[in-house]
Write a protein that binds this DNA or RNA. Structure first.
Lengths: 210, 210, 210, 210
DNA sequence: TCATAAGCGAGACGGTACGTCGTGTCTTACG
DNA sequence: CGTAAGACACGACGTACCGTCTCGCTTATGA
């Protein structure tokens, strides 16, 4: 199951994961990305300079550019590494529990990486490859998780398969991300509960009652 | 009624609107912002240069920097001007119609200004003032519109006031914006219809049946 | 006699001199030039800005440019005004006394206006008019004074007219100016005495002894 | 003997001379300075732009500013390089010949670098370091040459050591430089001859006759 | 064992944009 | 009308960063 979750971009990175402990150069790479992430969070995309990352890491610019051909790539890689290890939320046994768990995880992640995501978003406009990478990583991964949760709910008989809508499978994480990134009202636990209890569950289970 | 819709920021701006036609310097300012917006849409934030805007407008850099102390301010102003005149969606007489209309307007606006919004979003991280400005402009304005629509629906007896939830009043526009800005699946009419028909209306009217 | 001393450039300015007390606008003009001179001495040509002069004088740039069409003209005018009133050294009755007096006056003037002279010199490279003006003012004026002194000495029988050389009539002031402007060893009274006693007088009176 | 002629500043520079041919970066530096000098002669200090030099040399502004922290430093360096290689005038065997030779060399150099010298002069007012550099380079170098010439004349018995005066050792070059830079009457061969024959030699040899 | 290479730090380089400042022209509004 | 105020087009200043490059130096392998 896990394998399915990993799209190309995701795999591209995770393939090296095992090497990280054995191969010293991947440790270095990870360190560089970590510093990138740190400076990114602190100063934002524009005010982040590859030079500063190199200096702080006592590396040279050539080393940076050998690994990531441009600042945008560097930032993307840092972002991916920063979000890679986010655990896939565990199953709780009930649809409501699973959704709340997804919401909770989304909130945490989107708050933590707010600046980075904004930076990557901004870069996406010019970089179709980045667009795809993000989509593959986030869109697909998210879809898999939610599909899994809903499928389990259907299997448990909690909802009808007909209530599932392709168009809005990411309504929960999407809205929460919106609240973190765009609006000035970051999501709280109440937000998650409200979306799940007053919107999603009525919608998903509404058909049942009829 | 219209007055209520306009938050402070909105009013603050629209108050000058009349001046724009009478005062020549505001025409010039508007022209500069329009060019900024154009180049911004075309090339994105990073690849936009103040110099290019000035050149295209046959203005000088000093003129630009006299009005907007930095590139970020310029872009924000351009964005605000670009979205200022977005008409408030008309009332259709039914909750469903109003919501669809809001969704449609949100889709159009967020698609049109996608790159600009991403750029402004990115800038927001460093500029708390920008944060507030955006919130005032978008958060409040959006809230007013939706509150109005829902209040009308309550008045019409379509829904119970108790079904309205502060936490998620912007679920519809929020999700649509997310789809435009973040996900790789820009919203379509189907998306709007799906959110309204299978999510919002069941949620809002669900309480009725009980 | 005085009239002869005044070349074109000199006259151009001094013609207004009488007006200065009666016509208020010339007082203003003199004030502007004085401020220019002051800032010039303080900051040098490059770091002097017309804007600063205008601001300090509570005048507007237009006022400055109406009177002096460029920064160079302004500086030249300021310099001329600054040196205009330098009294022609009085006659002492002996050649040696006169020469020492000329030397003393040159030293004082060239030290006082060192920066200004350097600035004007620099500007002269591009501005032939300035070249002429300077020449007329300084070259001619200087020549007249020295010619007068030497003629008096000849008349007194101190020297032969044949000892006077057109090519080097300004050797004394020239060398002193050089010492002030170019070398790092500004002239002292000893310098003047040395030039007069060990160089000029031997040269001028040498022919006598034979 | 030659070694004695070279003051510290002179040696300081000429020591690098050999490197210039072997080290490629010094060739580049020399090229940049040569272009600077060329544009400086052509347009003068104010109208010279670092950007233009960089463009003409197919270099970047950063390269210029890395080597010379400001336009003034650049111009000074260009001037020093431009005058560095000026050959020390050869000895002719007689005091008169040596003085004429010094005069001739001074005339040529001061005419050739008139604009540059004026620019550097102007800059000196604000830059004490430049003051010292110039003094070291020109004052000392000039003094060495003249001292050497006079010493040789003493040795030959042409003049008395007592006729030499510290205060005016640079009277010849000083006056010639004055004529080039300040006055509108650039020195000619006649000027040199007149100064040497009717002023310097009488002064230096006058004591003998008595 | 030694050399040949591969990766590295350091940092110069050509570009490009930034944001500032000064010049000289022009317009507006006041007296 | 002359003036103070100051906007404007132009263009140079000096800074910072990008992405490329060349240098030596260190390792780490392969003859």
């Amino acid at each position: 199951m896990t394998a399915i979750f990993q799209g190309r971009a995701y795999a591209m990175v995770t393939d090296h994961q095992d090497d990280a402990s054995s191969c010293p150069w991947n440790e270095r790479e990870a360190e560089l990305l970590a510093i990138t992430l740190e400076l990114l969070q602190e100063h934002g995309y524009d005010r982040l300079s590859v030079e500063a990352v190199a200096t702080k890491a006592k590396a040279s610019k050539a080393t940076m550019y050998r690994r990531w051909p441009s600042k945008a790539d560097l930032v993307l890689a840092a972002f991916i590494q920063g979000t890679r290890d986010t655990a896939i939320p565990p199953r709780t046994g009930s649809l409501r529990g699973d959704l709340l768990e997804i919401g909770r995880a989304t909130c945490q992640q989107s708050k933590e990486h707010m600046r980075t995501m904004r930076a990557v978003l901004n870069e996406m406009s010019h970089n179709p490859g980045l667009q795809d990478a993000m989509q593959e990583k986030f869109g697909l991964q998210r879809k898999m998780v939610i599909d899994g949760v809903l499928a389990a709910a259907v299997e448990r008989g909690e909802i009808d398969a007909s209530a599932i809508n392709e168009e809005i499978f990411d309504l929960l994480p999407g809205y929460l991300v919106f609240r973190s990134l765009v609006s000035d009202r970051p999501p709280t636990e109440d937000t998650v509960r409200a979306v799940v209890d007053s919107v999603l569950l009525p919608s998903l289970m509404g058909a049942r009652g009829r």
